[in-house]
């Protein structure tokens, strides 16, 4: 295999792994947050609205790591710097 096809193959693999592993942690974290919030809401139904608004903010913060992984995998798909470099190196040769 030449360098360009290696870079292409590994970019796709890296994007998939990045998304899979990156979303794993935040999925577990969001599940924990939701479980705790539900428990708290069941114990104190009066505070439910306040807990819910805090839950949304927390979820969004936890979700950020998965979104970084998503952006990185978009980057490796559509704006891969190594791929562009290899194409340029091959064309100037």
């Amino acid at each position: 295999m030449d360098a360009v096809s290696l870079i292409g193959a590994f970019s796709v693999l890296a994007a998939g792994l990045c998304m899979g592993i990156g979303s794993l942690g935040s999925a577990i974290g969001e599940g924990n947050a939701a479980a705790s919030a539900l428990q708290a809401m069941a114990q104190q139904p009066d505070e439910a609205s306040r807990i819910r608004s805090t839950l949304f903010v927390t979820m969004a913060m936890v979700e950020t790591t998965a979104l970084y992984a998503l952006l990185i995998s978009f980057l490796t798909f559509y704006a891969n710097p190594f791929w562009n470099y290899a194409i340029e190196a091959a064309s100037t040769k």
Partner: peptide, 16 residues
């Protein structure tokens, strides 16, 4: 900065 990236990532992922 993460606030900006969060909104961008969410909307871009939805559109794409």
């Amino acid at each position: 900065f993460s606030m900006a990236l969060r909104l961008y990532g969410n909307m871009l992922s939805g559109v794409m």
